[in-house]
């Protein structure tokens, strides 16, 4: 177990280094931040000064080494645009994104799995088909389009919910959250729904497919034959067995929800990391982009790790050592 953890950690470190290297090259390939940062009215002296001040006059590998040296001591550099430490900037925006992603995932799981279960048990019924039709619509429409329609309908036409921004926040375990007050919740609802819709549809389909396979398995037939109640068959036997792929997907999707929050955040002006990232890409604010990715990758590796753990708990046939290449 400890070995497994250590190996995983070492691998993750490699991932982080490889990735930061790629981002450095990527941003370098896109363009020169100086062209965006410096006021176009400024003279050449000012451009040269800024280039030097931001360290962009040195060769790329040197800039990268400086970054690595800083990163080793926890300093991911200063934002070109805001002039504050990039990590600080991201961490200050992180709670908003996590809350949004988490809430979206809760909506997706809370609605998606029961609906998928129903659709899987009654695949030919009107309800089952209706659910599937909904799921198809759900992932057919681009997120940004759905977002605007939600705003049009709930905020502009009906005036029930605010169109953008984050509401009142309260501290919960030291983290500012907004779902504890009506104002905060009302701001959270639309973007979370927008973000959840795609995952919701995915979960419905996945659960349905799994359930339909599970009901044909011998253990379910056997359980039925034993005369177990319908509820118990579903609750214990089917649900437990379909959980493996579903947990994998939920784990994987949580990362992608955080990433996809980029679009939702920029439409709903939700002050999270996704919006910060888009702005930073538009401004070529490299330290923020790199730091963002570092934080996300770290988070992601942690999630993957947990998925593997849960996996091994749910399915005793999968042992931890194997999933990281231990052989047999």
């Amino acid at each position: 177990m400890f070995n497994y953890f250590l190996r995983r950690f070492g691998q993750s470190l490699l991932v982080l280094i490889a990735m930061s290297c790629l981002v450095f090259l990527g941003v370098f390939a896109i363009g020169n931040p100086i062209d965006l940062l410096v006021n176009p009215q400024a003279d050449e002296i000012e451009r040269v000064r800024t280039t030097a001040a931001l360290g962009l006059d040195r060769p790329l590998y040197e800039q990268y080494l400086t970054f690595l040296k800083g990163a080793a001591s926890g300093d991911l550099g200063r934002s070109f645009v805001f002039g504050v430490p990039a990590l600080e900037l991201i961490l200050s925006k992180m709670p908003a994104t996590i809350e949004l992603a988490f809430f979206a995932m809760v909506i997706a799981v809370a609605i998606g799995i029961p609906l998928g279960l129903v659709a899987g048990l009654r695949p030919d019924g009107l309800i089952g088909r209706g659910i599937m039709a909904f799921s198809i619509v759900g992932f057919s429409l681009p997120t940004f389009w759905v977002g605007l329609v939600l705003i049009m309908f709930f905020a502009v036409q009906l005036g029930w919910l605010p169109s953008n921004g984050r509401g009142e926040t309260t501290l919960l375990f030291g983290m500012p959250v907004s779902f504890l007050s009506w104002d905060g919740l009302s701001h959270l609802l639309l973007p979370a729904l927008n973000l959840a819709l795609f995952k919701l549809s995915l979960l419905i389909r996945l659960t349905r497919a799994q359930v339909r396979e599970a009901v044909l398995q011998d253990y379910v037939k056997f359980a039925r034959a034993k005369g177990l109640s319908h509820g118990r068959v579903i609750g214990v036997h089917i649900l437990k067995n379909i959980m493996i792929p579903i947990v994998t997907v939920i784990g994987l999707e949580f990362g992608s929800v955080i990433a996809f929050a980029i679009v939702t955040e920029s439409i709903f002006a939700w002050p999270g990391t996704g919006k910060l990232l888009i702005d930073s890409i538009n401004q070529l604010d490299r330290p923020v982009i790199v730091a963002y990715l570092m934080v996300i990758v770290t988070l992601f590796i942690a999630i993957n790790f947990m998925v593997d753990l849960v996996y091994s708990l749910l399915d005793p046939r999968v042992r931890l050592g194997q999933s990281s290449g231990g052989g047999r």
Partner: peptide, 18 residues
């Protein structure tokens, strides 16, 4: 893992920018 830890939009964005 590397691939999945990049937000898909970001990869596409960088690739298309290049």
């Amino acid at each position: 893992d590397i691939q999945l830890s990049f937000p898909s939009i970001l990869i596409a964005l960088i690739l298309l920018a290049v």
